[in-house]
């Protein structure tokens, strides 16, 4: 993390994102915000808040209800010298803009021989837990992690949300930020001023000797809660916060596997063909394989649309007791 110094205060995740955009708007005239209802309304999750009143409608732009159109304009603006931050109301609506994100933004620099790059930042409120049902609750980050040319991050703390957004603005390529909706109100220490968190670098949130849990976004917090419970039983779980899906921090993960010999991947996206599959395969292909002392466990989302019913919605994604149970079985040599 590079920082410009200053103090540290408690901010919510949404406030930290807003502060990052505030700093960017204030310091770089190329920066503009785009998205549906991000102006006077302040954004579907109140992330942009009052920024329209401070920077005006020329720089905080409400776009029509067309993700394809909005994303296309943002990408075009990035190609022609601006630094747009485009907000999706829900990450689910990325499906409407797949052409622009996957076929255009990800490939333009490559196809034009490096003559043009696309320094666009896209923000995606993601994940379940808000009772928003099947079309507003998905975790689609792995889809985009599959596309060379994109960078995909998944901050789990207010400080990382700010630092990764500012790092994304400095990046010459498209960076997609998946923000878990349940985290927006979470508070945490956030340094003042401008700083960046490196894209592609995981963080060890808790060290442990018995097993390691690799998680992202809200799952980091569930893993930490599980680790606390496990610690009372004498099981010390390491918790690694991925922070970045593409590029993924291979070294930190493999090192943890070498030290602990046991791995649990926890992610909210659908289990099959998800982030945990990639991490498991990465370990199996590496020299860390020789340190595995038990099968790898993936705890992922159910093979079903996210249900509306609140109890079923909870059951569809990994919860703290699921992580505790898996870790117990793993550390106890029962798997």
């Amino acid at each position: 993390m590079t920082t410009a110094g200053g103090g540290v205060r408690e901010l919510s995740y949404a406030e930290a994102l807003r502060e990052a955009m505030d700093i960017a708007l204030a310091s770089d005239p190329r920066v503009i915000l785009m998205g549906e209802d991000i102006g006077v309304y302040g954004g579907a999750f109140q992330v942009t808040g009052d920024l329209v009143h401070r920077y005006g409608e020329d720089r905080v732009i409400d776009t029509p209800i067309s993700e394809l159109g909005g994303a296309g304009v943002a990408i075009g603006a990035a190609m022609t010298g601006l630094r747009p931050i485009y907000e999706f109301q829900f990450s689910d609506f990325a499906t409407l803009a797949m052409e622009q994100i996957v076929n255009q933004a990800a490939k333009i620099r490559y196809m034009l021989g490096g003559a043009v790059s696309v320094p666009v930042v896209m923000r995606f409120p993601a994940g379940s837990g808000t009772g928003a049902a099947a079309q507003h609750s998905q975790s689609l980050e792995a889809w985009f992690g599959h596309v060379p040319g994109l960078k995909v991050v998944q901050p789990s703390t207010p400080a990382d949300a700010k630092g990764l957004l500012l790092a994304a603005l400095e990046d010459p390529d498209p960076v997609l930020i998946f923000e878990h909706k349940l985290l927006y109100k979470m508070k945490g220490p956030v340094p003042e001023g401008h700083y960046t968190v490196p894209i592609g670098k995981a963080a060890i949130r808790r060290p442990g000797r018995d097993l390691c849990i690799v998680a992202g976004a809200i799952m980091v917090h569930r893993a930490l809660e599980a680790a606390e419970a496990l610690s009372a039983e004498g099981i010390e779980a390491e918790v690694i916060d991925l922070r970045s899906i593409r590029p993924i921090d291979r070294d930190t993960i493999l090192d943890a596997v070498r030290r602990t010999g046991r791995l649990i991947c926890v992610y909210e996206g659908v289990k099959t063909l998800g982030i945990g599959a990639e991490i498991s395969a990465m370990v199996a292909e590496s020299d860390a394989f020789d340190f595995l002392d038990a099968p790898i466990i993936r705890l992922g989302g159910a093979e079903a649309p996210i249900p509306y019913n609140p109890e079923l919605e909870k059951a569809a994604v990994p919860q703290v007791p699921d992580i505790v149970a898996a870790a117990r079985a793993l550390a106890g040599g029962r798997l």
Binding site: G261, F289, D290, F291, L292, D293, A294
Partner: peptide, 17 residues
């Protein structure tokens, strides 16, 4: 059997190492 691995022997990669 310098390298002969008993057929069906179950061992974790860590145990083997």
């Amino acid at each position: 059997g310098a390298e002969g691995r008993p057929a069906g022997l179950r061992a974790t990669p860590a145990a083997r190492r």
